[in-house]
């Protein structure tokens, strides 16, 4: 027998039809166990900025393209966010919007003569929180990236961190909100990384110096 009781704290599920209320209560009683497994889809826009007139290399390590964050939360089950599968499309779109051309580079220390530099992104840490943990309506995801910039001769010119953040309101995703809301928060974090990178890139001192050398100045 399943028995559930509600008092003044009426949840938003009361907007549902009466016939589905019993089902809701059963699901609510069974809730709490679970977790979620989501993958970020590789659908990202191309930044709308003045392109840097240089050919750019991109090296994506397997540690990035295979990155999966897995975590077991107390009384909330196992959670998994596959970020790696979206990284190739994400960085391809990002750099193709920012540079004249983008080329994959197998070894950033030996980039060959075609590119002015090589960008090597990596994920150093991922954190997330659930609405139950924060007592809010939001899933939140933080992704800490670490970027390396190599010059055309393969020398490491600089490296810098970038922390991206995304959140998603579980109320926007109906009753089975766990997976779509977590996925939306992870997508938002990836978009934030792209946005942050776009506006920050030209302000990094090592990048400014590199742009001065290669393109005659840090164009907008």
């Amino acid at each position: 027998m399943v028995k559930a009781s509600m008092s003044g704290a009426v949840s938003s599920m009361l907007n549902c039809r009466a016939s589905s209320l019993v089902l809701v209560l059963v699901l609510a009683a069974l809730g709490g166990c679970g977790g979620a497994s989501v993958s970020v889809p590789g659908l990202f826009p191309v930044p709308l900025v003045d392109r840097i007139p240089l050919p750019m290399g991109l090296h994506l390590d397997e540690s990035l393209t295979g990155y999966v964050h897995a975590e077991e939360l107390e009384e909330q089950g196992e959670w998994e966010i596959d970020l790696g599968s979206a990284q190739t499309q994400m960085f391809q779109n990002l750099l193709s919007g920012m540079f004249d051309s983008v080329y994959p580079v197998a070894n950033p220390a030996e980039p060959g003569g075609e590119v002015a530099g090589v960008l090597v992104p990596n994920i150093s840490e991922v954190q997330f929180s659930t609405p139950l943990q924060t007592r809010s309506d939001y899933f939140e995801v933080w992704v800490r990236y670490r970027f390396q910039l190599y010059g055309r001769d393969g020398e490491l010119l600089g490296e810098w961190p970038l922390t991206a953040y995304g959140k998603a309101d579980e109320d926007n995703y109906g009753m089975q909100s766990r997976e779509p809301a977590l996925q939306a928060a992870a997508v938002a974090a990836c978009r934030d990384a792209m946005a942050f990178f776009t506006v920050q890139f030209r302000t990094i001192p090592e990048v400014r110096q590199w742009l001065l050398t290669e393109a005659g100045g840090p164009s907008r």
Binding site: K3, G8, V10
Partner: peptide, 23 residues
């Protein structure tokens, strides 16, 4: 604002609720 209470039970023979809620 909200008040009232409502109790629902599901058994092998059926299900039902009793009470009154307002919000």
């Amino acid at each position: 604002d909200s008040s009232g209470s409502l109790t629902c039970s599901v058994t092998a023979t059926g299900a039902g609720c009793f009470g009154f809620l307002t919000w």
